[in-house]
Every structure is written in C-alpha cells, then in structure tokens.
Design a binder for these strands. Structure first.
Lengths: 202, 202
DNA sequence: TTAGCGTCCGACCGATCGGACGCTAAGCTG
DNA sequence: CAGCTTAGCGTCCGATCGGTCGGACGCTAA
C-alpha cells in the first residue's frame, strides 16, 4: 500500500519529490501550511520522516516548495484554461469564469489554497509569507493587465478605476470561497457569476 | 510583572477568566484558534498552565469561550455602534459603515477574527466549527433582516435579491480584510466604501 | 570489480503540546 | 473557631513536533 515504490535511482527521486509535493498541497489546503507536519505527511506516503525531509532540508523549504506546486496547479487550472482567448475584456471574462470554476470544482480539497494561506500567514513575516504574497500579486497583476487593456480599447468604460474593479472582483471570489467552504452553498457559483457579469458589464 | 494578581476570591476568579479570554482573543486572532496554546497563553499572563486550564477544563472549551468573547467584542464594535439608527436602509448603511470601520481600526490585532477562524476551521467538524458558523450566520441574518426591510419599504429596488446582495456585501468586506492584512493597503477602506455605496444605491 | 554518490531508513534528540494529579492557601459559612 | 470550597501552582505524563545522524542499499562511472 506504499505510495512510493522503493526505487533508488535519481530519476525516481524526482518522482518521489513530486509525489510528496502533490500530497503536501492537498494536506496543506485542508490543514494549513503549518498543520502540514513532516511526520504525518511521511506516514501518509509510507515513507520515513528523514527520507522525506532529505528532499527539502527543513519544513520551511518544504512549505515554499508546496506553495510553488500549488501555484503551478492554479496556473494550470485557471489561466491555463483560457489560452487562446483574445486579450482585453473577453480574456478577463474567461479568466474570471475559470476562476469561479476552479473553486466550484474544488481543485484543492480545502478550497482556494492561497486564500487559506493568506489567512494563515498574513500576520507573520518571513519567506513563506513573502512567497504567498508574491503569488497573489502575480495573479492580480495578470488580471489588472486585462482590465487596463479592456479599458484602453473601450471594452470597459473609460473612467474605470482598475484598482477598484480589481478590489471588487477579488471580493466576489473571496465571498464565493467563503460560501462554498462554510455554507456548502451550491447556489454561490451562480451568484458569483451574476456579480461578475454586473461588474464587467454583463 | 504578573498579569494576574494572586487573589483567590470568587469575584476575582471571574476577573481572571475575563483577562484570560481577552488576551486569548488577541492571540487567536493572530496565531489562529489552534495556534493559541495553553502554555504560551499562561506564560503570557504570568500564570501556570494548570491554573489557566482550571477555568475551562480543556482546550476546546477555551476555544469556544474565546469565540464567544470575540463575538461579544464584534457585537459591541459593530452593531453596538449603530444603536438608535432607524431600521431599513439607514441601519443597513450604518452597519456596513461600522463593519468597515471595525476592520480599519484593527479591533482585533490579527484582522477580522471570524474571517480567520472560518479559514482555519471550514474543513473540520465539531463544536468549534459549529460555533464559528453560528456566529457568522447570526451576523448575516442581522444584515438580511435590514436588507429585506429596506426592500419592502421601497428603500431598495423591489426586485432586490437579498441573498445576492448579501453575497456581494460580504465579498466587499472580505476583500477589505484581505487588502488590509496582506497588502497593508490604506486605500482599501475607501474602495470598500465606494463598493458598498454602489451596492446600496449610493 | 570497485569506489563513490545519492536515496531512504531507523533510531534518537530536545522542545513543546494538551492534559492529569495532588497540593497549598485563601475566602465563605457554620 | 472549625470545616468546606476553590483558585491557582508545581510536577509529571504520553504524544508529537522539527530535525540530526549513521548506515544500508542501489545506481553509475572508472
């Protein structure tokens, strides 16, 4: 029943590492990045603590690698699903739609990985908080680019306040995550779509 | 340097209990309800673990008492600030305004206590999650009552979808908390006020 | 064939966790 | 005064935390 077959080659080591990270992302999205403990994760994968820690060296490095893996999954499940959509408002709409879908599908078993990570680390300092903040900043920048583009070509009103729109769009998605996780409200997705449609001139 | 004077009367015991809870709320809003540990909290207050635990019996009971205390503070800092405001839209506006102010003033050192608690416990089960969900439900019900009232007397459009409005209002406040905690963005309060004004027919 | 490297394990470390237990000492009641 | 209640303390416990260390094993290059 071991999740990791006991091979020892270098290529299999890379595989082991990715297995650790995939499972680590799942656990961290539910238990939090601090609740992700080395011993439990190792037992979960049928390996020893030291064998697991050998790939990273410290819990903090593991956390940073998990954040990176989660960012990769997010990038693949949200912006990765709208490749080919033309820039500006169509792309902005598609990104938001994929964002809603990502939460509805429950890509991470504990809801939005980064929302949970922000809530956990926003009061701390250090590389982990910086990494989380960086990922959020990148994603918001992607959206801001489309907002500004859509505004500049007239797809959104010329007096659109990009920061204000970003603030409100983000709120809709935070509210969606909140409703899905706390209330298990399956009508929340439709509400989010309605709110987005209104914000983007639906 | 002890935070709790070593008196032994029953009335002072109640005082000790409230000192524990006040500090517990502060710690929990930053470190989380699970990160609130009995030993550290006791050392923080200059008392022993067993002396502290004697007031509650278990960590879970302490967590529930902390949640209750936090709810009391919220009730005093948000709805408690709008007593006397007439029902309907004026009261709804005042509640939202107080809600924004509560986040801007940083009533809890770690941001909104309940937002953090929801993020931490939304995937678990048990009395702690239930207590958090209950507090959020009560607060939303308070707002919903004002939304429905405002709609029925024509202060809001007759076709107002109360659940939809609630969803979007909550999103604005979640986005505000997010911006304040992660970005330390002091312009977020104004953005929240603008968004609320638009939602409530500013 | 063998030396070296990298992966992984088992054992172990000090620290800290939640919690149990018995005790002291002070206030209340008779 | 005696006797009961109880706030709070000191000590101890098993479990678990992150992390270290030596060694076993297999692959690869010489």
């Amino acid at each position: 029943m071991s999740g990791v077959s006991p091979r020892r080659s270098a290529t299999e080591a890379r595989h082991t590492r990715s297995v650790i990270l995939d499972r680590g992302v799942e656990v961290a999205s539910v238990e939090g990045l601090e609740g992700l403990t080395i011993g439990r994760l190792a037992a979960d994968l049928g390996m020893s603590k030291s064998g697991l820690l050998g790939h990273f060296g410290s819990k903090e490095v593991l956390q940073l690698a998990v954040i990176d893996t989660a960012a990769g999954i997010f990038g693949q499940e949200v912006p990765g699903r709208v490749t080919g959509v033309e820039s500006g408002l169509p792309r902005l709409r598609a990104l938001c739609s994929a964002w809603v879908s990502y939460l509805e599908r429950g890509v991470f078993p504990g809801g939005c990985f980064f929302t949970a990570a922000v809530a956990e680390f926003d009061d701390r300092e250090g590389p982990v908080r910086d990494a989380i903040a960086g990922m959020v900043a990148v994603w918001r920048r992607d959206l801001m680019i489309q907002i500004r583009l859509a505004t500049s070509v007239g797809e959104l009103p010329a007096d659109t306040d990009a920061d204000q729109l970003m603030f409100e769009l983000y709120g809709v998605l935070l509210s969606l995550n909140h409703s899905l996780r706390l209330d298990r409200d399956n009508k929340a997705g439709d509400r989010a779509r309605r709110a987005i449609a209104r914000l983007l001139g639906g």
